[in-house]
């Protein structure tokens, strides 16, 4: 056996090693994904193409509701998360504080689902502890129309994982700001404000923007929390999709659920792609 044959055999063996993983992804991720798109474009006997139907009428307003919720919770998450990160930087002399906050952020960023909804129901539900406490000092949330299952209620809950997620993105980005940049800017005559405006902020922008997109995608895909808050009646796209799979559906529109899912994939794909591009740029600058 000459070496070339051995080499190619080796190569084949090498590819074989990736086969289980590749097949697994094909079967359980790619195939379902393609199935969604195939069905989404399959009009069947329906009067309208499902992909078009999915972005008109009540479904359109569902998407708008979901996206608005995602953007608002992401912007607030960005602002508050960044404020926390800057506060940590200011308090860098307090030993251990940073580790505690960052450590808890990792925990809270992973929180969500039913238990989190329960916690907020207990605090801010109609009879919630915080709701009644605030009413005692003349802050009547319910009287003002606040409901934990409505838009701002869900935003309040989502912030529980959005803020720490942003903190986790920003803290390393702030660490990446080199002291020499601020000193160079100062020696060139820049004030602290000018340093932030012309140097630090532009350098942080990709990380901030990337983190923002990540937060949008994160909120957009969320399902369980809103479902539990609203007892299954939310306007969110994710909750709408549920109806179609469970057969609680208007006949002739079976593929509409797939179309909603397909649009979700398209939107998140753009968000994630944007995140990847931006974080790659941030990475390149850090060298």
């Amino acid at each position: 056996m000459n070496s070339r044959v051995a080499g190619s055999l080796n190569k084949r063996a090498r590819h074989l090693a990736f086969a289980p993983y590749a097949i697994f992804l094909l079967v359980f991720l790619v195939w379902p994904g393609l199935y969604v798109f195939r069905s989404a474009f399959d009009q069947g006997s329906a009067p309208k193409n499902p992909m078009i139907e999915a972005v008109t009428g009540q479904y359109r307003s569902s998407f708008i509701f979901s996206l608005r919720l995602s953007f608002v919770s992401a912007i607030l998450g960005l602002v508050i998360g960044a404020t926390v990160a800057v506060a940590l930087m200011r308090l860098s002399h307090v030993r251990g504080l940073r580790n505690v906050v960052v450590g808890y952020s990792a925990v809270a960023a992973n929180m969500g689902g039913i238990p989190l909804a329960f916690a907020f129901l207990a605090a801010f539900g109609m009879q919630g502890l915080a709701t009644r406490l605030l009413k005692g000092i003349n802050i009547d949330l319910i009287g003002w129309g606040f409901r934990i299952s409505d838009f701002w209620g869900i935003v309040l809950v989502y912030l529980y994982f959005q803020i720490p997620l942003m903190t986790l993105v920003i803290v390393p980005a702030l660490d990446g700001l080199r002291r020499t940049w601020s000193e160079a800017a100062q020696s060139l005559g820049a004030s602290t404000r000018q340093y932030w405006r012309f140097v630090a902020l532009p350098i942080l922008t990709p990380a901030l923007l990337g983190g923002f997109l990540l937060l949008v995608a994160n909120a957009f895909a969320a399902y369980a929390t809103a479902f539990a808050l609203s007892a299954g009646s939310s306007k969110l796209v994710t909750v709408q999709i549920r109806f179609f799979l469970q057969g609680e559906t208007i006949t002739g529109k079976t593929n509409l659920g797939y179309a909603l899912a397909a649009w979700m994939v398209i939107i998140t794909a753009f968000l994630v792609l944007g995140f990847q591009v931006l974080s790659r740029r941030a990475e390149r600058w850090r060298r």
Binding site: T180, W181, E183, A184, A185, S187, V199, I203, W285, R286
Partner: peptide
């Protein structure tokens, strides 16, 4: 009114 050059990585990367 002082000009300074640092060991490295002091150019603004953006």
């Amino acid at each position: 009114g002082i000009g300074m050059v640092f060991q490295n990585y002091s150019l603004f990367p953006h």
